[in-house]
Simulated assay, not measured.
Amino acid sequence: MDASFWALVSLILFLALLAYLKVPGMLTKSLDDRADKIRNELDEARRLREEAQQLLAEYQRKRKDAEKEASEVIAAAEHEAAGLVAEARQKTDDYVKRRTAMAEQKIALAEAEAVNEVRQSAIDIAVSAAQTIIADKADEKTTGELFKSSVAELKERLN
């Protein structure tokens, strides 16, 4: 029993020494400091996570806005392209109509010129034939009368 007694006394003295040196307070303080540190790290991790979620939401919003803007630009470009195609088609139709009208006018003019040439040729042939016939059949008296009647007719037409 003597050894047990001294072991008990040693234990009590050791515990008293630990209490006197405030070892339990230091352990508690160390554990509290570590708990505070872990709590701060958890708070920092939560804050960083929230920031990351906000950034993610902002980037997703920006992406949606960019997609919307891109689709609007594409729609505007398609609309403009359709307008340009319609305008080009209209201009082409107008050009074809103008060219057709010009060709028809040229054809009509050529027809009129051809008719006039035929008439002129017929007149020239008729005048030539008439001159030949009159020259063959006319004497001086008839020629003089024709000349006088032609001059009179010309005066009448000029007045």
Results as ranks from 00 to 15, higher is better:
60 Q>I: 06
62 K>N: 12
63 R>Y: 00
64 K>V: 06
64 K>P: 01
65 D>S: 04
65 D>K: 05
65 D>T: 00
66 A>T: 05
66 A>M: 09
67 E>I: 01
68 K>C: 03
68 K>G: 05
69 E>D: 15
70 A>T: 00
70 A>G: 00
70 A>Y: 00
71 S>K: 14
71 S>T: 09
72 E>N: 11
72 E>S: 05
73 V>C: 00
74 I>C: 00
74 I>F: 04
74 I>N: 05
74 I>T: 05
75 A>V: 05
75 A>E: 15
76 A>Y: 10
76 A>W: 08
77 A>N: 09
78 E>T: 01
79 H>G: 05
79 H>K: 15
79 H>V: 02
79 H>E: 15
80 E>K: 13
80 E>S: 07
80 E>V: 02
80 E>M: 03
81 A>M: 02
81 A>W: 04
81 A>P: 01
81 A>N: 03
82 A>S: 12
82 A>G: 10
83 G>K: 03
83 G>M: 08
84 L>V: 00
84 L>F: 01
85 V>A: 12
86 A>Y: 06
86 A>C: 03
86 A>P: 04
86 A>V: 03
87 E>P: 09
87 E>V: 07
89 R>V: 02
89 R>N: 11
90 Q>C: 06
91 K>Q: 14
91 K>M: 09
91 K>L: 15
92 T>Q: 15
93 D>W: 02
94 D>S: 11
94 D>K: 10
94 D>Q: 13
94 D>G: 04
95 Y>A: 15
95 Y>F: 15
95 Y>K: 15
96 V>Y: 06
96 V>W: 02
97 K>F: 09
97 K>Q: 15
98 R>S: 07
98 R>D: 09
99 R>T: 12
99 R>M: 10
99 R>W: 07
100 T>A: 14
100 T>S: 11
101 A>K: 14
102 M>Q: 13
102 M>L: 07
103 A>F: 12
104 E>R: 03
105 Q>Y: 09
106 K>L: 14
107 I>C: 02
107 I>D: 06
108 A>Y: 13
108 A>V: 03
108 A>D: 02
109 L>I: 07
109 L>G: 05
110 A>Y: 08
111 E>D: 15
111 E>M: 07
112 A>T: 11
112 A>N: 13
112 A>S: 14
113 E>K: 08
113 E>T: 00
114 A>G: 06
115 V>N: 11
119 R>H: 11
120 Q>R: 11
121 S>K: 14
122 A>V: 07
122 A>F: 12
122 A>T: 07
123 I>T: 08
124 D>F: 08
125 I>D: 13
125 I>C: 01
125 I>A: 11
125 I>R: 12
126 A>I: 11
126 A>C: 06
127 V>K: 13
128 S>I: 01
128 S>N: 14
129 A>Q: 13
129 A>N: 13
129 A>C: 01
130 A>W: 12
130 A>I: 05
130 A>S: 11
131 Q>T: 03
131 Q>C: 06
132 T>P: 07
133 I>H: 10
133 I>F: 12
133 I>V: 14
133 I>C: 08
134 I>R: 10
134 I>C: 07
136 D>G: 05
136 D>Y: 08
136 D>W: 06
136 D>V: 01
137 K>C: 02
